[in-house]
C-alpha cells in the first residue's frame, strides 16, 4: 500500500469520525443529508458483498467493517434516535434517491468488466459513490449557515477522493496492472463534483470567514 492510498483511507476515516462526533456528541445532524448517508450505506453494502468470502488483509476487512458499521449507524441515528432526528432538515433535504440509484444501476448493467451478479453490484457501487454526495452538496447550498463540523466532513470526503486519484497515478506507474477505466472515470467524476465546494472552502478559510455557498 502506498502513502497516497493510506492517506486517502485515513482521510475517509476522519470524515466519518467527524460526522459521528457531531451526531453522537452534539446530538445534532443539522446540515447533514440523510439521502447522501443512505446512498453511502447502499454503496458499501453492494461493494463489500465478498467481505467474508474474499480475504485481502486484516486492515482491509477492518476498514470495510468500519465503513459498513458507521454508515448504517449514521442512518439509524438520523432516522431513529429520539433527539438527533429532531435536528434533521427534512424539508431542505429533498433530493430523490431514485434519480441517482436507477441510472447508476442501468449503467452498471451495460458497462461492467464482467456480467456477473457480484461484478455488476461492485460496478453499481462505484457509479453510485461517484454521485452520492450530490444531495449533501444541494443541502449545503440551501443551508445559510454551514457549521464547522459539516464543512469539515465534506472537505475530508473530497480530500479522500483527491488522494485516491494520486494513489491510482502512483499504482499505474509502479505496478503491472491494466487500465481500470470504470474505477478511474467514476472516481474522477466524483472528485470533480467537489471542485466548487473546495473553491469556497479555501476562500472562506483564507479570509477567515464563515463558509457560505452562493445560492
Amino acid at each position: 500500500m502506498n502513502i497516497f492510498r493510506l492517506a486517502g483511507d485515513m482521510t475517509h476515516l476522519a470524515s466519518v469520525l467527524v460526522l459521528l462526533l457531531k451526531i453522537h456528541t452534539i446530538k445534532s445532524c443539522a446540515g447533514v443529508s440523510l439521502k447522501t448517508q443512505e446512498l453511502y450505506a447502499l454503496v458499501f453494502a453492494t461493494r463489500y458483498l465478498d467481505i467474508f468470502t474474499h480475504f485481502i488483509s486484516i486492515y482491509n476487512t477492518l476498514m470495510k467493517l468500519i465503513f459498513l458499521g458507521s454508515s448504517f449507524s449514521i442512518v439509524w441515528y438520523m432516522r431513529r434516535h429520539k433527539i438527533v432526528r429532531r435536528s434533521y432538515d427534512k424539508e431542505q433535504d429533498t433530493f430523490r434517491h431514485l434519480f441517482l440509484i436507477l441510472p447508476c444501476f442501468l449503467l452498471a448493467l451495460v458497462i461492467n468488466e464482467r456480467f456477473t451478479f457480484k461484478e455488476v453490484m461492485w460496478t453499481f457501487s462505484l457509479y453510485l459513490e461517484a454521485v452520492a454526495i450530490l444531495p449533501q452538496l444541494v443541502l449545503l447550498q440551501r443551508t445559510r449557515n454551514i457549521d464547522n463540523l459539516t464543512g469539515q466532513y465534506v472537505f475530508l470526503l473530497g480530500g479522500y477522493r483527491a488522494l485516491y486519484i494520486l494513489n491510482w497515478i502512483y499504482r499505474y506507474f509502479t505496478e503491472q496492472h491494466f487500465v481500470h477505466w470504470i474505477t478511474w472515470i467514476s472516481g474522477l467524476v466524483q472528485t470533480l463534483l467537489y471542485a466548487d465546494f473546495f473553491y469556497y472552502y479555501f476562500h472562506s478559510w483564507k479570509n477567515n470567514e464563515k463558509l457560505q455557498l452562493p445560492a
Partner: peptide, 10 residues
Amino acid sequence: SQESTTKDEL
C-alpha cells in the same frame, strides 16, 4: 479469470 487489482481498495 483475472481479478482487477483495484478490488483491494475500499
